[in-house]
């Protein structure tokens, strides 16, 4: 098992907390982490659709790189990784 830290900002923080440590099996991907996190809050639909696909507007940062939601299933995690999730806020 691996421990993955996920930090959330803006409305993702309201729904899923400021920070969570997820226990994930070896070989888990960024998409797995986002799906697991989505299941911990009251509004999973903020992060994933009914099929478990990460919503296109979700901003994912992993090791200082932005991960496209479409590529998240190909990015393998290692123990101790940190993922940052935030929506692009739009207000002015």
């Amino acid at each position: 098992m691996m421990k993955i830290q996920v930090r959330c900002f803006a409305r993702f923080q309201d729904a899923f907390g400021e920070e969570q440590i997820l226990d994930l099996p070896d070989g888990a991907t960024v998409r797995d982490a986002v799906r697991v996190l989505a299941g911990t809050g009251p509004d999973a639909g903020l992060l994933v659709d009914a099929e478990g696909n990460i919503r296109s507007y979700v901003m994912i940062m992993h090791r200082d790189e932005r991960i496209s939601p479409m590529d998240a299933e190909e990015v393998l995690l290692v123990d101790g990784d940190v993922i940052i999730l935030f929506p692009p806020v739009s207000g002015g």
């Binding site: 409305r11 932005r66 935030f86 207000g91």
Partner: peptide, 25 residues
């Protein structure tokens, strides 16, 4: 941009930095 108690900021310098569409497609 702002929302609630949160905000974000970046400066785009053409030709020398990635642009806003690189960040937010």
């Amino acid at each position: 941009a702002v929302e609630g108690f949160s905000g974000q900021l970046t400066s785009i310098i053409p030709q020398s930095s990635p642009c806003l569409a690189c960040l937010i497609p």
